[in-house]
Amino acid sequence: MVNRQPTLSLQQRRKRSTAVAATWFLAPALILMVIYIAYPVVETFHISLYTWNGISPDRTFIGWGNWETLLQDSRFWQAFINNIKIMVLSILIQIPIGFLLATFLDADSKKFNLFKVVWFLPLLMSSVAIGFLFQYALATNGGLISTISNLLGGKNIDLLGSPDRALYTVIGVIAWQYIPFYMVYFLAGYSGFDDQIYEAALIDGASRSTFIKVIGMPMMKPTIISACIMSLIGSLKYFDLVFVMTGGGPGYATDIMATYMYSTSFKYFKMGYGSTIAAGMFILITAIAVLVRRVLTGKEER
C-alpha cells in the first residue's frame, strides 16, 4: 500500500478517501438493519419450512408443507381481505377528511388554532390506549354511541360485538386516530406554497373554493400521492389497535394478517406456521407496495 500510494493521482486518492469515509458513516445503520431486519426476514422464510413450537430445540423439516397449508387457509385469506378492506376504506376516508381539515386550517391557522389543537389530539394517544378507550366508549351497554342512540329514542347499538359491523367500526376508529396525521401532513404541504400564488389568484378574483380546485389540488398532488402510499402500506401493517380492541373477533370478523400471525406464533406457539404467515404477509405487502408505487409514479410522470 505504502509503495503504491504515490502512483495514485490526487483525484483517485480523494475518491478512495471518500469511499472509506462513506463506509464508516454507513456501517452502523447497515449493521443494525442486517441484524434486526435483513437476517430476521431470511430466517422467517427459513423457519417457515419447519414445524416448531418455538421452545423445544428440535424442529421438524417439512419442506413446503406449511406453504401448501397457507395457500388453502381460508382464515389467512379472510384476514388478507380484511386488510384490503381496511386499506381501501382508510384511503377513501382519511385522505379526503385530512385534506379538508388542512384546507380549513390553512385559511387562517392563527385564528383556528383551537381547532388545530383539538383535531390533533387523537394522534398523541397510543394505539393500545385508543383500542381500550374505544372498547369502552363503543360498548353496547352504556357506550357513547348507544347512549346517544338512547337519547334519540333508539335502542342500544352493538358495534364491536356484531360480526357484520365490527370491521367497519374498527376502520372508523383507525380513521379517528390517523386523520390528524394526514391533516398535519397536508398542512405542511400547504405551507410549502409560495404566498405569491395566493396573491396572484386573489388579484385575478378567485374565490377560495376555485383556488383550491384549480390551483391547490393540482399543486398538492405529489403530497396527496405520497400520503396515499403511506396510508396504504400502513393499513397492511396494522396490528396494535385491532389486537387490543377486538383481538380479531368476534369470531374472525376483524382478523388481519398481523393478528393472525401473532396469535398463531405467540398464543398457540406454532412458530413454524406463524413464520409462514409472516412470510406470506411479507410477499403480499411487498408486491402491493411495488405495484402501487409503479402505477402512481407512472401517472405522475405523464
Partner: peptide
C-alpha cells in the same frame, strides 16, 4: 435498499428477533 425497507412489516421479523 434502505428506503425499500420502509414497507417491511415488523411482524415478519418478530419470531427471529424473539429468538435472538
Amino acid at each position: 435498499l434502505i428506503i425499500a425497507c420502509m414497507s417491511i412489516p415488523m411482524h415478519v421479523t418478530l419470531i427471529p428477533v424473539f429468538k435472538m
